[in-house]
Design a binder for these strands. Sequence first.
DNA 1: CTGAAAGCGCTAACAT
DNA 2: ATGTTAGCGCTTTCAG
Lengths: 350, 350
Amino acid sequence: MKKNPTILDIAREAGVSKSTVSRILNNAENVSPGTRKRVLEVMLKHRYRPNFFARGLGGRRTGVVGVVVTDITNPFYSVLVRGIEDVCRVYRYNIYLCNTDGREEEEKIHIDSLMERKVDGVILASTMLTEHSLADLLERDVKLVLVARLPEDHSSFNFVVVDNVMGGYLAAKHLITLGHERIAYIAGPWLSSPNLDRFAGFRRALGEVGLGVDEKDIVQGDFKMESGYLAGMKLAKSLSSRPSAVFAANDAMAVGAKEAFSELGMDVPHDMSVVGFDDIPLGALRCVQLTTVSQSIYDQGAISGKTLIERILHPDKGGIQQIVLPPKLVVRKTCARVPTREKRGERSGT
Amino acid sequence: MKKNPTILDIAREAGVSKSTVSRILNNAENVSPGTRKRVLEVMLKHRYRPNFFARGLGGRRTGVVGVVVTDITNPFYSVLVRGIEDVCRVYRYNIYLCNTDGREEEEKIHIDSLMERKVDGVILASTMLTEHSLADLLERDVKLVLVARLPEDHSSFNFVVVDNVMGGYLAAKHLITLGHERIAYIAGPWLSSPNLDRFAGFRRALGEVGLGVDEKDIVQGDFKMESGYLAGMKLAKSLSSRPSAVFAANDAMAVGAKEAFSELGMDVPHDMSVVGFDDIPLGALRCVQLTTVSQSIYDQGAISGKTLIERILHPDKGGIQQIVLPPKLVVRKTCARVPTREKRGERSGT
DNA sequence: CTGAAAGCGCTAACAT
DNA sequence: ATGTTAGCGCTTTCAG
């Protein structure tokens, strides 16, 4: 028997024409039950699979979407991708996975490749949302959903994000409620919308109670753990007085900072409170117990996947879909009530 | 202008035939520089992309490989996939990512889907290597590389693994050198080849110095952190005497066990030494500092990717490729010299 | 309900 | 060095 039977082989063996087999493949109504059964049996017998490429050639849907992330190794993205993959499977969609490492060039290559392979849609969670890449995609009506981070002007895109402003606000509010008045911020890149928004919310909460953020209490990081560690070191070593709490733009940096504090003999939370953002699994470890703002990463993936595929399947239905998920404060053990003025004096004096 | 220009549109506009354009697409030699330049310009102008499906229809290579893992959310797999993706990109290959959660049914669905999409090859890192799935793949000469875990009879497959026997041996040897004589083992599933092999190496090292493993000191886990925690609890609470060290079949369980010990007020490493396996990033955290056996996960991914693609590109060259990488002991801070007999007596008496 | 025939966009002989 | 032509396997009118 032939290795890869074609539709013609099946048709011949079942004593019908290609068209009939094709109809059965596509679940068309107008086939008599008898014929259908006979053909299906032949298909089964030969383990027949229609040729994906021959099908795609007709300019129809391909059943594949591209997923562009910065780095699958980063737990944030791996959970996101998992969410996407899970819904894609339900729709029998496959995904092409692409890592860009945040480099524009890589992103271009990947997007080129995705277009060449005629994906039905793309989920972009990469950091470098260059105008150029986006324009490219939109020009050839590829369905597009942005997730987690947005370009400056995102009014015309489908997207799924968490409300980062509210998240920053929740974090700050929590610290304020505990009596903290001087709170440092460990920042991510300022081109990144989540960083920008989290900071905005943070600052707003402070503003509401008449507090502000000193320039010196904003330390630059890059969302990676090491940069948080460095930032923590810098903050801890502030010569004169230091803040009593830190809000880090993400968990990785928060954990890094916490490690720096511990290493310098400071007690978290009593000498320094720490709040992160993301709620990565690591933060739940018994030896970390990070208080953080949780965004349901998996859900963001799942929702963006569903949004994308629904758009592909029903291109005409509905306009732009922009989904903003609420974040949630997760209180664990890295925040404490601010020490009284006297006690703080004593401690920082040592 | 047309949305998606075809090779014919380009040919017409450049005043040549389809074939000439096709030759240029495929970097054939026999095209005059002048023509080539002219055609390339037209292509560029229209941002022309050859139709992937039309190309694939010729029964040629598709430039896509399938990657089947248990769960991309697991750091082990995400690093592995990253390694694969990186080499694929070099060859301009795309990957289809599939998660099976270790369920045979999911694996079947995914493999079906991969075959339907005519992938050039598959990298299987999933746990459930059923005979059935493998047979399916081999029947329709799809190139195949197994990675990380192997079926019982793997003599006829291409694979890339770490030498788990040696790894187990190294771990045990390290503990033995520190004076430990009673060492517990936190096991993974016994269907898993890494668990089996690590245990074999572990037992061999013990045997060489006349030691053995008591049945009671083998605690069952499932490679996940929670199971390690439970195992740790169980070990710590052994009523009479307890081992002075534990070797866990992977890092996740080792960390779980360590957390259990800490929670019970035991001091790691002085009351209990712990060794893991994998060297996941988490183990390097300052608050963990896990001594472990390192396997270069990224390399395994990269090598398996390269092996697969080389096989696809040169199907005739060379026979089966079976690569066994050496593991390496990474000494951090969870192992200590065994306490003297007297001190141990005191402690366990409390 | 079923069949015949014309493409889909590209590659690969075979001509010129 | 370039053009012509015949498929690749399937979908899709259009006829019966």
